[in-house]
């Protein structure tokens, strides 16, 4: 299967197989009219299988989202057909307006203007908790 290489844009590589669509939605790429390729279950020597997202535009992507969903992914910035930057992910201390708190008793459930903010409380187990009610984050 062939997907054209991009001249200027972003390639999110080494996504754990199956996480590509989740990232696509959380990065809100479905809300843009950009050309985006989601390639699923690509054979990978390192990972067995992986997903790749190619965005045909040099747009800022929310690295916090990628780091949260799949810290093993890499983000490659392509300009004039060449790789100019490769970013490794690191779990962010805070996630702002990436996830919504699922606790119906949380103040964010009634006060719509509040930002949904989650703080990393357990790096080893990748646990984020709502800064308001301390409910564990979940996608």
């Amino acid at each position: 299967m062939n997907i054209d290489s991009i001249q200027n844009g972003v390639v999110i590589d080494h996504i754990t197989a199956g996480q590509g669509m989740k990232l696509y939605h959380l990065l809100k790429l479905d809300e843009t009219d950009l050309s985006v390729a989601i390639i699923r279950n690509v054979v990978s020597r390192k990972m067995g299988k992986k997903d790749i997202i190619k965005i045909d535009a040099d747009i800022p992507v929310n690295l916090d989202v990628i780091a949260y969903v799949d810290p093993g992914a890499t983000v490659n910035i392509i300009r004039n057909g060449a790789l100019v930057e490769k970013r490794q992910m690191e779990l962010p201390e805070m996630l702002t307006d990436v996830l919504t708190c699922k606790n119906p008793r949380c103040i964010t459930s009634t006060e719509q203007e509040l930002k949904h903010v989650f703080r990393l409380t357990d790096r080893e187990n990748k646990v984020y908790r709502c800064i308001y009610c301390e409910t564990k984050a979940g996608i």
Binding site: R105, I107, E111, C130, Y132
Partner: peptide, 10 residues
Amino acid sequence: RHPKEGAAYV
């Protein structure tokens, strides 16, 4: 005092 969790933080 407020019924919603996190209200005091806000």
